[in-house]
């Protein structure tokens, strides 16, 4: 009898018993009334196939409410609705505006934990369909976000090139540097440009600096993207870079990522996604 310990089951059984009891009493009452009651009162003139109706006028309050409703109905039909123009879209707009104001007030200064939670939620709805639930890119079908932002990913981009963010300077060709040279530049970028912390190859940083000119041609000496002509490498591996990709979309080597700048995500949500994506590779 384990299931009797469950509150919901208990309530349902009690309810069922109560309904049966009440039904029995009510039915018995009416059967008794049908057997014993005599009809009294004055019959109305109309009858239907011999079935008549007593003159049993409405209580006065009820009649007044009924007449009041008719008057209100006439007002609503002729003036209320046509001149005030209710619309579903209008109600939607008001509700959304109210919600957005509330949302902005509530999350005006979110802490890290809130941002991560928000980012995770948005990621599962908007990003996971292509990048996978874990962000691994589903066997190369989309960018592997568990690698993105790391030193290894920089080496990968230098070897394979990159395109599709739609910056004025266009596509980054593959193989600008090879082997250790690519690793060296990645090490330099991690430590000095993006400032992501310690490089895995600290001894290559100096060599990377001497080779940086290859990158500086497009990304600028300090990696800031020459005033919007190419992606700012200072932001690489940071939420701001993800926000930039969300706004621009990316027609890259793997496939095409759509833009997310149609108002589906608010600025704070984009930043939250950036934080979450960033955390995947750490």
């Amino acid at each position: 009898m384990n299931w009797l310990n469950d509150n919901v089951n208990m309530l349902a059984l009690l309810g069922a018993a109560a309904i049966i009891l009440i039904t029995v009493f009510v039915v018995a009452k009416y059967i008794k009334q049908m057997k014993e009651d005599k009809s009294t009162g004055e019959l109305a003139e109309e009858n239907w196939d011999g079935i008549g109706e007593y003159k049993n006028e409405l209580p006065i309050g009820w009649s007044l409410a009924f007449l009041g409703t008719i008057v209100w109905g006439l007002w609503y039909f002729l003036i209320g609705y046509p001149l005030n123009g209710y619309s579903q879209i209008g109600e939607y707009n008001e509700e959304v505006q109210k919600y957005n104001t509330k949302f902005e007030n509530k999350w005006a200064n979110p802490d890290e934990e809130t941002l991560m939670g928000m980012g995770e939620g948005v990621f599962f709805v908007q990003c996971a369909p292509c990048h996978g639930v874990t962000g691994d890119g589903i066997n190369g079908k989309a960018a592997d976000l568990t690698v993105w932002g790391s030193e290894a990913a920089i080496v990968d981009v230098i070897l394979k090139g990159s395109k599709g963010l739609n910056y004025p300077l266009g596509e980054m060709p593959a193989g600008l540097l090879q082997g250790d040279d690519a690793k060296a530049v990645a090490a330099y970028m991690v430590e000095k440009i993006a400032k992501l912390g310690k490089s895995k190859n600290p001894d290559l940083v100096a060599k990377g600096e001497s080779l940086w000119a290859v990158c500086a041609g497009c990304h600028g000496q300090n990696g800031d993207g020459m005033g919007g002509n190419s992606p700012s490498l200072k932001n690489y591996g940071k939420p701001e870079f993800v926000v930039d990709v969300l706004n621009r979309g990316k027609a890259g080597n793997i496939g095409v990522m759509p833009k997310f700048n149609d108002g589906r995500l608010s600025d704070i949500q984009k930043l939250a996604v950036g934080k979450y994506v960033n955390s995947l590779s750490q």
Partner: peptide, 20 residues
């Protein structure tokens, strides 16, 4: 607006692989 050619190609071949 939010899915692209390559996504559809992968997805039509095996939806469960793309969307667990």
């Amino acid at each position: 607006n939010y899915r692209t050619t390559d996504w559809h190609e992968n997805h039509m071949l095996n939806p469960a692989e793309i969307v667990p």
